[in-house]
Design a binder for these strands. Sequence first.
DNA 1: CATGATAGACAACCAGATTTACTATATGGT
DNA 2: ACCATATAGTAAATCTGGTTGTCTATCATG
Lengths: 157, 157
Amino acid sequence: MGERAPGYELPLLLFAAFRDAIDRAHADLAEHGHPDVRPMHGFVFQAIGTHGTTAVELAARLGVTKQAAGKTITALERQGYLERAADPRDARAKKVRLTARGIEVLELSERAFDAVQAQWAQAVGEQRLADLREDLRTLAPGELFRLDAPGWFGTGR
Amino acid sequence: MGERAPGYELPLLLFAAFRDAIDRAHADLAEHGHPDVRPMHGFVFQAIGTHGTTAVELAARLGVTKQAAGKTITALERQGYLERAADPRDARAKKVRLTARGIEVLELSERAFDAVQAQWAQAVGEQRLADLREDLRTLAPGELFRLDAPGWFGTGR
DNA sequence: CATGATAGACAACCAGATTTACTATATGGT
DNA sequence: ACCATATAGTAAATCTGGTTGTCTATCATG
């Protein structure tokens, strides 16, 4: 019969671990000259990638409306992490690309997450961490980049 | 050296699994007559417990300001899940307690999470799931009930 | 070339948390 | 008993960030 853990514990643990990873990574980013990068920006940069995207494509990838994606892009553009350029293939579209500063954050955040992972591997062992990842791949469905969470969350009404 | 997974994958997996559990549980709740219960309410109920709490205590437990906790309480009170009663020991305080309807949701959500857990156990095996939980207990720090996530999240500025 | 679909931007609105400020009550020292 | 300070709760203003609705410009298809 295995464990007698209450069912609600596991989701909370998943979230707490997630949160811990993000917090660690961003503490690291803050130390390296990017204190204004918000928790999810790393994933936004990841979703944009080094090749760039359009706002609509990004919105689909993040699971938010194109307007929300547009706002995020505008904000990150103002902070110098992104730039918009006209798409030569399509006069409607604008390519969103990471600036040098954006790429720096992307790389820093990759390294930060790697560090967290290494720390975790040390805590539970390489094999157990690999198992954990494998099992989560089994359990976690579909698209990984879903950033509509702020709205999905929420306690009041 | 084990896996060559990019460091950002694991956090995303953690969050995706968390989200999946919540969504499943709330689909279940909706089917059982509580379609208006929001994703995090189950945890709020859990944090209140069957013995009740005060707003300040709840706020501390959830990791939000007492004002935010107060708003949540008011909302859930309007929906008939909670009730406030004067605390005989302290005329300033008001005890927040679950109504019968609130307790029903608490129990339903416990069962729903148990069902998710059972489903997961079937997917990866009892032992692997037990290991996963144990490892997460090692990795996830401190307080589990931190519901300030909506503010903590967020992509724009 | 006309019709419908798509990319993007703007405005209005909504949800939910924080900050600031206030009242009422409790507690502890003198 | 009294005063200073801390605490429980509430309220208002603000901020962030998402959605819906609407608009223009451009593409793609008949």
